[in-house]
Write a protein that binds this DNA or RNA. Structure first.
Lengths: 120, 120
DNA sequence: CATGACGGTATCCTTTTCGACACTATGTGC
DNA sequence: GCACATAGTGTCGAAAAGGATACCGTCATG
């Protein structure tokens, strides 16, 4: 089980910052949330949008987001299984945060696929 | 060495979000930045503000932040060593991001030391 | 009968992260 | 001579995160 890690934040002021980070941290959560801002998606729709994420990891991240009350999981009792994920109001309230992250990232993060060739 | 982990982000749009997260993620970085927004601080001043962080971890986080160009490290060649940390312009540009995180956290993160008693 | 889509689990393993602890150098105060 | 303060470094080990891979049940299709 992914373990809830936001049990205590007794460090100092500014820790709600860390607290928020614990919600959206986790390799794929930011991207998942980002895609869900567009609207409700099925499991495999999300998968296809994040090809580098393994099925196991995606399930993990979704479960944690769900446990944190950020996304809702709706299961349809159909025969080819159908599960839809959508943001809860709480999840949607993260939009300004994600937006702030994206704005800074667009300005400051270099998405350079060719950098990794340096060692060759 | 802390290893730079922002080598590639080829996953999908929204990944600058992840990119930004890689900069401010890391257990204590958010708090360190938060305290540095107040102004320049010496090593032990930061330590005292974040008692739960070990010396080694603090050094680590500061080194990573420095390597990422977010903070500046100024060493005074004095005899009781004196090192001052301050934000670079790039680091300061993170302020809206940290602020967004803090706003959400203040509203949504429960700093509840008593919640962890649930299992008892 | 075999295959594929769907939405997962279970298991294993590697990498990364984090914390504890000891140790360093230099100078001051006792 | 001893302890203390500053600002670290080094090593060790536990724990967590992440990735690879295989497997599950069900129904439709070929």
């Amino acid at each position: 089980m992914p373990r809830i890690r936001h049990e205590r934040f007794d460090c100092s002021p500014g820790c709600t910052v860390e607290g928020t980070l614990r919600y959206i941290d986790g390799k794929w959560k930011g991207v998942v949330l980002y895609h869900l801002f567009e609207g409700t998606l099925r499991f495999n729709e999300i998968r296809r949008r994040i090809p580098n994420c393994t099925q196991r990891m995606l399930t993990n991240q979704l479960r944690e987001l769900e446990a944190d009350g950020l996304i809702a999981r709706k299961i349809y009792a159909e025969v080819p299984p159908k599960v839809e994920y959508s943001l809860t109001p709480r999840g949607r309230s993260l939009e300004p945060v994600i937006t702030a992250l994206k704005i800074w990232g667009d300005a400051n993060v270099t998405l350079a696929p060719e950098v990794s060739q340096a060692a060759a």
